[in-house]
């Protein structure tokens, strides 16, 4: 009786198909991209709930620029600065300051906390990978730094008449390399710190030298020659100088861009080597 047998077989197969997938028709697992997008979306919502991070990364650099811009003497062109005003020099400094607060202060604490509280470990029990969480944090902090940069350039231009960069592409390249190096510094801090407390202490130790090298206290152009040479060997010191050149309309020195890029590569390699997921 071939007909009834095959009929019942196909009936049972179609009945069991929706219930027990793997044996019959394995649906494709969600792709790495769609899983990463889901993680990024969740992390973006969480990032939006951190007003402290927003303040320090997005608002604080422009607030500092505004305060300095309100000092009348800082709006006077100076011969020592090659005809530029102090407020002109502080626009790139504001950009670099936001890469520092994002990369050195905010991100390492988030990542170290995720590891300390077992969030990375929990994620590693699912088909998602904890690296998706790390990359989401890098992307979100990078985006916040970008928003901060646009805000500083806009306020500088509109409130204080600071000219927009005359070599925009070179400016963008120098800025992206600086942001990469700063965020990579953050992943190194997170890699080497076992607890949030250690990460915060480590971040503070790194915070002041990087701010100094970025020219927060005195723009790099105003430093004595020897000090300039030293500072330009640091990722943000080199970027500060490169941003100054691009603002004036020149393509930045390849050596300066190379210094920032090399730092970024080395720091990424260090964190990839030492980062612990649990």
């Amino acid at each position: 009786m071939p007909a009834p047998t095959s009929a019942s077989a196909s009936a049972s197969a179609s009945a069991s198909a929706p219930a027990s997938g793997p044996a019959t028709a394995p649906a494709p697992a969600p792709s790495v991209v769609s899983v990463s997008v889901a993680v990024l979306r969740a992390e973006a919502r969480l990032f939006a709930r951190e007003p402290g991070a927003w303040f320090w990364i997005v608002l604080f650099p422009t607030a500092l620029l505004t305060v300095l811009g309100l000092v009348p003497a800082f709006r006077e062109p100076s011969k020592d600065l090659g005809g530029l005003r102090v407020v002109d020099l502080y626009v790139p400094v504001a950009l670099l300051l936001s890469t520092i607060t994002a990369g050195v202060q905010s991100m390492p604490n988030v990542l170290t906390g995720y590891r300390e509280r077992g969030i990375l470990r929990r994620l590693s029990t699912t088909p998602a990978r904890p690296v998706a969480l790390l990359l989401s944090q890098v992307v979100l902090h990078g985006a916040a730094v970008l928003v901060s940069a646009v805000l500083a350039l806009a306020v500088g231009r509109l409130a204080f008449g600071v000219a927009l960069p005359r070599q925009p592409l070179g400016y963008a390249v120098a800025f992206v390399l600086a942001a990469l190096a700063a965020l990579a510094t953050g992943t190194v801090i997170a890699a080497l710190s076992r607890t949030v407390k250690i990460a915060a202490a480590f971040g503070t130790i790194v915070f002041f030298p990087t701010m100094f090298s970025a020219g927060v206290w005195a723009p790099v152009q105003t430093m004595p020659q020897t000090l300039q040479t030293i500072v330009q060997a640091t990722p943000l010191g080199a970027a500060a100088r490169a941003l100054g050149q691009a603002a004036a309309g020149d393509w930045p020195d390849w050596t300066l861009l190379g210094v920032s890029a090399l730092w970024a590569v080395v720091l990424i390699a260090v964190s990839a080597r030492w980062f612990r997921w649990e």
């Binding site: 769609s34 899983v35 969740a42 969480l46 709930r49 969030i119 929990r122 998602a128």
Partner: peptide, 24 residues
């Protein structure tokens, strides 16, 4: 797992939606 948490500010609904997105 023992001693593993979630992001402090993630809501229950968001956690459930997020984890749903990982599976076939």
């Amino acid at each position: 797992l023992q001693e593993s948490e979630l992001q402090a500010k993630l809501t229950v609904r968001e956690a459930l939606e997020l984890y749903s997105a990982f599976y076939r």
